[in-house]
Structure formats: C-alpha cells, structure tokens
Design a protein around this nucleic acid. Sequence first.
DNA 1: TATGAATGAGTCTTCATTCAT
DNA 2: CATGAATGAAGACTCATTCAT
Lengths: 233, 233, 233, 233
Amino acid sequence: MGYTYLKSQHLGIAIKYFNMLICINEHCSFMQIQKDDIKKNVLIAAREEFLNKGFKDSNMRTIAKKSKVGLSNIYNYFKDKNEIFIEVLAPLTNELDKLMLEHNNPKNITIDYFTSDKHQIKHINQYLELIINYKDELNLLFFKSYGSSFENFRDEYTDRHTKAGVEYIDKMKEKYPYINSDISEFFLHTMSSWWFSIIGEIVSHDLSNEVIKKFISEFMEFGTAGWKKIMKV
Amino acid sequence: MGYTYLKSQHLGIAIKYFNMLICINEHCSFMQIQKDDIKKNVLIAAREEFLNKGFKDSNMRTIAKKSKVGLSNIYNYFKDKNEIFIEVLAPLTNELDKLMLEHNNPKNITIDYFTSDKHQIKHINQYLELIINYKDELNLLFFKSYGSSFENFRDEYTDRHTKAGVEYIDKMKEKYPYINSDISEFFLHTMSSWWFSIIGEIVSHDLSNEVIKKFISEFMEFGTAGWKKIMKV
Amino acid sequence: MGYTYLKSQHLGIAIKYFNMLICINEHCSFMQIQKDDIKKNVLIAAREEFLNKGFKDSNMRTIAKKSKVGLSNIYNYFKDKNEIFIEVLAPLTNELDKLMLEHNNPKNITIDYFTSDKHQIKHINQYLELIINYKDELNLLFFKSYGSSFENFRDEYTDRHTKAGVEYIDKMKEKYPYINSDISEFFLHTMSSWWFSIIGEIVSHDLSNEVIKKFISEFMEFGTAGWKKIMKV
Amino acid sequence: MGYTYLKSQHLGIAIKYFNMLICINEHCSFMQIQKDDIKKNVLIAAREEFLNKGFKDSNMRTIAKKSKVGLSNIYNYFKDKNEIFIEVLAPLTNELDKLMLEHNNPKNITIDYFTSDKHQIKHINQYLELIINYKDELNLLFFKSYGSSFENFRDEYTDRHTKAGVEYIDKMKEKYPYINSDISEFFLHTMSSWWFSIIGEIVSHDLSNEVIKKFISEFMEFGTAGWKKIMKV
DNA sequence: TATGAATGAGTCTTCATTCAT
DNA sequence: CATGAATGAAGACTCATTCAT
C-alpha cells in the first residue's frame, strides 16, 4: 500500500530536491534558472488570464493552474495580484514613458509638428509600432485594468500627455511668436483623450493594414487642417 | 342582525377607502406614497453608493443602510442590484435614445451639419444640456458601470452612433453628389469615440462655463476645418 | 396631481368597500361569496404552482400573484403554506380514505378477491377512476410533496394498506381455512408499494386508454397467477 | 561559496523530500495523507448530514462543523454541494452501472431468467449484496436526493432498466420463438418500478435476515408463476 | 378582511492571501 | 523556495411569515 504513495511525479520532485542536496559544493545554477522560469510562467499565464477576464475577474487559482506554479508559491515572486499585473504591463509602460519623454524633448519642438505630414507621420508611426508590439498589453491597460492600480492609468497618462502639450505650445510660442497659442488646456486634454481613444479603437478591433492606412491619411488630413485653422498658420 | 357584519375594524377600513372617494382633489397622502418613497430612497442611496464605488464594488448592505430600507425589503422593489442600476440610469438612457433617434432623422440631413457653425452648435448644445442634467449619471455610465449590464454601453452606443454616421453620409452623398463621401467607417468610429471621450472629459472634470465655451469654440473651429478638408467642400 | 392617485382599479375597490358601508342593514351576502372566491382562487393558483415546481420550490409570492390575492391576505384563509397544500389535496385524500375503509370492510372479504378477475377488476377500476379524477393531485402527493406534511404520505398509506392486507388475510383464513395464509407482512408491504408505484407510473406518464387496458390485462394475468400460487388455491 | 545556497530551512525541506525517496516501502504518512483525510472527513460528515436531512435541507455550515473543516476550505476539495453528494454516492452508482451492464449482456439471456429459481436467485442476490453494502447510499439516492442532480435518478434508472427489459425480451423471442413476447413496455416499466420499490422498502425498513429470506421465497414464487403465465410457457 | 411594507435568519459560494512545514 | 491546507470576511439573494393600518 505505502508504496503506491510515491507516484512518478513525486519522484520527479524528490529527485529535484535530491539534486539540491548533492550540489552543496557546486554552483547550483539550476535554482536561479528555475526561479526565472517560474516568474516567466506566471507572467505568461497571468497575461492570458487577464486578457480573458480582466484584472478583477481574474483568479489567482487559475493563474496558478495555468502556470503550473503552486498558488502560494506565486507569492514568493510577487507581492500580490496587482504586482503581477504591473509586471505584465511593464514592457508597455516603459515604452510609454520613453515616448512621453521624447515627445517632450525641447529639441524636437517645431511648428511643423502639428502642420506637416512628415512630422505627424513620425509621431503616428511611433505609436503604431507600439500598437503592433503591445496590442494585448494596451488592451489590458485600456479596457481590463479595473480593480488594479492601473485603473486610472489612461486618465493619468492623458493628463501627463496634456501637460506635455501645454509646455510644448508654450515653447512653440517662444520660437514662433506669431502663432496663436491661446489654446485651452481642456482642448488639449480632449485631443490627448481622442488620441488614446483612437489607440483603444485600433487595439480592440482587428483591422487590416489597409484600413489602418486609410484611417491614418484621413486622420492626418482632418487633424492637420484643424490645427492649421486653430493656430492660425 | 346584518349590522354585525361590520365590525369596528371594518369600519376603519371602509372609512379609509371611503376617504379615497372623497379625496379626489386632495393630496391623498395615505396611498402609494409610502411605496414610492421607498423606491426613491433606495434609488437615491444607490446612486450615491454607485457614484462612490462603482457598480461592482457597491454593496447591497450599504445601500440598505443608507436608504434605511431593510436589505431584503429592497428585493420587493427591485429584482436585483443590476435593476437598481438600470433604474438609476433610466432618465439618462431615455434621453440618449431620443438624441440618437433625432440625430438619425433624414429631414435633418444637410451638408451644413458638419461644416456650419450653426448646426454644430445645435448638436453640441443638445449634448451640453444632457451633460448639465445628467452629469452624475453619465459618470456612472461611462466610468462606473463595470460588472453591470451597462458595462459595454459606451461601446455599443458608439457603434450605433457610427452606423448612424455612415447612413448619414450616404444620404448626404445623394443630396450633394460632388462631396467626397469616401470616408472610412473606422474613421467615423473614432470620431464618435472622440465625441464620447469629450463628454466623458467634461463630465469627470469640474469645468467653469467659460472653459466650456472656450473649448466649444476651439472644438468647432478645429472640427469644421477638418471636415471641410476631408469632404473637399 | 393628487387626482391621479385614484386609478380606476382603486375606484373599484373603493366602491366595493363603499358597498360594505351601505349594506349595514342588509344581508350583505356578497361578502361571503367574495371570501369563498378568494379561497378558491388561491387553491387554484396554488395547485398550478405546486404542480409546476413541487411544494418546497413553490413560492407564496407567485401563488399570491397568480391568484390575484394579496400575499398577506392569504394568511387570513390559510394558516400556512402547508395548509394550502393540504386543502389542495383534500379531495384526493378523502377519496383515498374512503377506498381504504371500503377495502377493509369485512363483508367484502372473499377468496375471489385475489384470484378472480371480476373482483380484481372492480378493485382496479376503483383506483382507475381515482386516477382519472385526481391525476394531478396524485402527482402532487406522490412526487411533489417534499417539504410538506405529506412528505411521507405514500409510506404511511402503504403501511395502512399493508395492515389492511394483513387483517384481510387473517379474516380470509377464518373463512377459508385451507388456504395458505402464511404470507409475510413485508411481502404484503411490497405488494402495496408495487400497487402505488403502478399508480405513480400511470399518473406520471401520459398513457392512451389502450395502453392502460393492455397493461391491466397483463397485470391481472400476472397477479392472479402469482396469488394463486402463493395461496395455494 | 556554493554552500550558502542551502540555508537551514532548505535542509529541512530537502531532508523531507529525501525521505520520500527512501521510504518507498514504508507508510510515508507525511504525504497526501492529510489531504485525503480532509476529503474523507467531509464525505463522512456530509453523508451523515444528507442522511439526516436530505440533500436540500442539508447545510454546508453543518457539514463544515461536523467535519471540522473550514467552510470555505471545503470548496478547495469540492466544486459545490452537489459534487459532494455525487462523491458520497459514487461507490453505489458505480455498482449500479456495473449491474446494468451485466444484466443487459446478451450471453446471459435465457428463458430461465424469468421462470427458473436459480436464475432469479442470482439476480436477486446481486441486488441483495448491493443493499447490504450500500444501504445508506440507496436511502440517499431513493429518498433524499431532492434538489441534487440525482433528483430523478430513480426514474432514469427505471427507464434504462425497462429498456434493457424490452431488448431482453426481443432477444428471447429470437431464441424461443414459441413464447409470448407481446408484453407491453409499460408493464415492464411497472415491473422495474416494482423492483426498485422493493429495494426501497428493504432499504428503508430494518429487516432481519429471516424476514428477507421469507420475502424472497414468496417474491420468487409469486413472480415465477406470474411470468410463466404471462409468457405462456 | 385586506393591504403594502417589512423582517431576519438563512442559503451557497468566492477569493486573495497567509500559514506551517 | 515550494507546497497543500487553511482562512475569514465578504458577496448577492431568498422566502415564509408577520406587522401596522
């Protein structure tokens, strides 16, 4: 009877731990490797689960099962559910921060930004690349973060984006005093918001490249005309 | 004796009902009033709670306490939590439906819609009025409906709005064949989405009337120029 | 405003009660009628509801709605839910009691009872009539009484039926000493149980008259042969 | 130094797992045992509770208390109340399935089945054994499963039993063309039903072995005579 | 008698997190 | 570090019955 208690899987575990014993004087590098694997597995499983059900309705148990990591063991790698979410989104949020910094870099300031296709295209392409690389993460961040610390990320990011916009226009005024810089912060805010809505739209619909291209040309035509009018250039 | 059929308590009731007859022109406070009060109290308390915590994190017990209605008694008036939410939002959703119908009315179709200030102003003012009257409800609907049957209301409404836009442009093309009507549905979709973002922005920020006015003039300048350009008129 | 409180239905009620006032010296017979009507309505509605969902899952609220009697008013006519059930089944249980008495009547005792078709047919027909008249009630009693005071009715009735059977055989032995009367009570019990199973079967399946006739002839052939063998006649 | 990787706690764990290796032939009580115990405890407590009050009126809290397992912890072992019920009855339902299969096995088909004592005795004994081993479970299944997914088990099983009976008689007709095989399905149905009534009777009454024996001989005498008559053999 | 309002104990189930080993 | 076990507070909803008028 007792014999049957040791199933093959147990043997595997036992051997794993047995290895720990005999590697006392060795480098034992497999432990670290193991650890990274576990983190990765959890993050992969969590990403999937979050995408399926959103943060709040995602279930630690399910993540544990999917990742094949013991439920409580997860807590050795992550403080809590929210931290997993943060790490899942880290690649995206890093990129967003980069973009924000660059966008706000004084040396990039030129009147052409709003009114020339070339500059708008550059801006758009940066985000397009972001969308291609982080479609799922953007989905998470925009539509499935309820209950997490990113719940208000979009708002906050829009605010920062807006502030950057304000500074941008101020600096533009210095360089090109003849333009109309009397643009309300709230208008800029809605423009930022618009922009993120668009990203959200692209991310949550499966669009062909043609549709995206067509849209971009429409968007630019519309936007450029709008900005020209409003800045009186 | 027949008299005995009418016990004193019967008399009480009879009088009560008799009163009903003769109080036609009075306030008749003894009827229905109470029931309506309870519904109202629950709706008020629920609205508050929903605004504070959003639908999902709102708690029936809290609503019961706030409204001073017994928890289980609430279920004599509403099927479930979701139904309370629906009723809280009913005034708003009715208005939205009305707007949608009117907006899509063929007789309102004119090229001026997109390009003339007058028509845009009318459209904007309709929504502005909505915002003024239903600020809280819009907040609920846009930002705090997670977990309710209105979870995807904004998406769905945007879709309907977009479809209305598509039909609109088709009809316009019939009337004004020289315009460019080759506008992608997705572009219209983002325009609808933009519009609801703006409403969301207004609703979730406390804006002075001046700020709103300024914004509207900017928005119209921007939008009119954009549409003119894109429709080649 | 106040005027609108008095809807036509209220008027009806008011008039009804007003009538009460003015009939002080009359016979006022409509009250008694009303009362009987209410009981009847409740019983009809309850029967339906019980048949649909069984006793336990039936809902006083639903019964109230169906019968158009105020929920709490029902308690003026019935002590509780169980009493409604009892009254719904009263016609059936009365019949069953009658049958039980008659079946146990000494003057009906004859050896032919078990072995002659004529007598068996009589017995069967009595129950068949019962089934035809009280199909629904039998269904309630046999399959949907969980949670009520009739929960164990079938058991109890089977017991009584069995006891009657025992007495019957005792008396038969007196009249016909040569038969084998050494039949275990438990066997009789299972025979009673069988019999009620059969009733249950008939009641819960929709059977054509032919199927029933065919069955009865089979049943009698089978049973008569069995009894003859076991009583050694 | 590599040594430092192995902290004292690791040593403890390592030893524990190392033990697993060397305890292959021992009882290895430190593994799995606990978990199995909990399941067992819950099942025992639930069985008791179900037997006392029936499925529907059984209370998860009580089961938790009786089993000394935390209420919510139970849900780590069972999906819901119904699953507990299923597992409590699993041993019985497995046996019943086995019997059904065997009963319907073509090679067991012979005219003696209905008319010879030997074959009937075998059949009866199989069920008798079942009754002895699973008295309580049968009680649960037959009389206390209201509200569970086994609510209609008896009906369904009777149906299957009946169908098996029909096939049986068809096959018999092939082997013994001279018998009367014109037996209505409904009659067979009532016979199955009878049979399960009998099981129910035995299970719910405490019977001595003698009573059972006596009953069986009566039952066989009765039944054999009946079948002979009806099949005209 | 009739009514609408109210009750309150009760139901099963969920889940992120922590504990002991 | 890994594991299975455990926790405990919280969740929405039900329903026969009683109360006040």
